[in-house]
């Protein structure tokens, strides 16, 4: 029974993820006085890519063909460990939040290799920039999660989110996590998802050589990853009050609360993207350094019991 709910949660999350991307884009377009693409455009894009023929460069190796599978697979696996709707629906016995980060790192590793594999200059630059940024992001994410985990003395995400009630350290950790979310979901001020300029791309550049079904997989993986990060952020700030034995009404309320958290997150991210210009690459160090410091600060405050 537990596992069927788990599967249900994962499927719903994967299915709703492109909707979140579409909603953020709609928010941005509304602020920019444009009508823009309809809400369901990411779905249309994925369907379109699935229908197209895939062109694979002759100079690539097996990594290029395997990477989309690894990325999508690891992202969905990571989804299993994150309590999206309620805290008991996660693969509790098998791993904790650090597993989530490891799975992300696995996907990122393969994607960076795939960017290099085709031998094009843009892919190589994108991979190097992605690795550069992730080397700052990962410590922040881990320390932040450590702060939240320390409350229940367990890094298992279900346990983590059971402890409702805010604390000072948790708030500061949430500030750090927000900056991490901006970096990991490729949002301005770190990366620009809407740009056509290959020379400035970070995440998109690694995907440039992909087409057809592989591209659909990678797009789905990117939007699912975004959903996971938003859930983690929402969980740290406003933990899941649902879990254990749940009735149907509880379940629906859980999903509604989740929807609300996503909408608020989308609004905040959309506003941030519109109001700022993209930072120069080496300034991102300052930005993520600040995030790292907030996470350490949270740890310091936690050490004193708050």
């Amino acid at each position: 029974m537990q596992y069927s709910w788990l599967l249900f949660q994962a499927l719903v999350a994967v299915f709703c993820a492109p909707l979140l991307s579409g909603f953020i884009r709609k928010v941005k377009n509304a602020l920019r006085m444009r009508r823009g693409a309809p809400l369901g455009q990411p779905y249309r894009n994925i369907v379109k890519y699935l229908a197209k023929e895939e062109i694979v460069s002759e100079t690539t190796s097996w990594i290029f063909r395997a990477a989309p599978f690894v990325v999508l697979g690891s992202t969905i696996a990571a989804l299993m460990f994150v309590p999206v709707f309620s805290f008991s629906f996660s693969a509790a016995g098998m791993g904790d939040v650090l597993t989530v980060f490891f799975l992300f790192a696995l996907g990122r590793f393969f994607l960076a290799l795939a960017g290099l594999d085709a031998g094009s200059a843009f892919g190589g630059m994108g991979s190097s920039r992605e690795m550069f940024i992730s080397s700052f992001v990962e410590p922040v994410a881990i320390v932040t999660v450590a702060v939240v985990a320390a409350h229940g003395w367990s890094a298992e995400s279900g346990e983590m989110s059971r402890h409702i009630g805010t604390s000072f350290s948790r708030m500061v950790a949430a500030a750090a996590l927000f900056m991490v979310v901006l970096a990991e979901t490729s949002r301005i001020p770190v990366d620009n998802q809407e740009t056509h300029l290959e020379l400035t791309m970070i995440h998109e550049a690694m995907l440039l050589e992909y087409s057809g079904r592989s591209l659909a997989m990678l797009e789905a993986a990117a939007s699912t990853k975004q959903l996971i990060w938003f859930s983690l952020l929402g969980g740290v700030l406003w933990p899941w009050p649902f879990g254990g034995a749940m009735t149907l009404t509880d379940g629906i309320a859980a999903m509604a609360l989740f929807g609300l958290k996503m909408i608020v997150g989308a609004l905040v991210v959309g506003l941030t993207e519109i109001g700022l210009a993209k930072m120069r690459l080496f300034r991102v160090v300052d930005f993520l350094g600040l995030a790292f410091l907030f996470s350490v600060l949270a740890l310091v405050i936690l050490s004193l019991g708050y």
């Binding site: 805010t166 604390s167 000072f168 500061v172 949430a174 500030a175 930005f287 600040l290 907030f294």
Partner: peptide, 20 residues
């Protein structure tokens, strides 16, 4: 909780001033 949120905001902004 709101007080805590605002205090965190003050702290975050104070740190942000250092990277300006």
């Amino acid at each position: 909780m709101m007080t805590l949120f605002f205090l965190t905001g003050i702290l975050v902004l104070t740190y942000a001033m250092l990277v300006c």
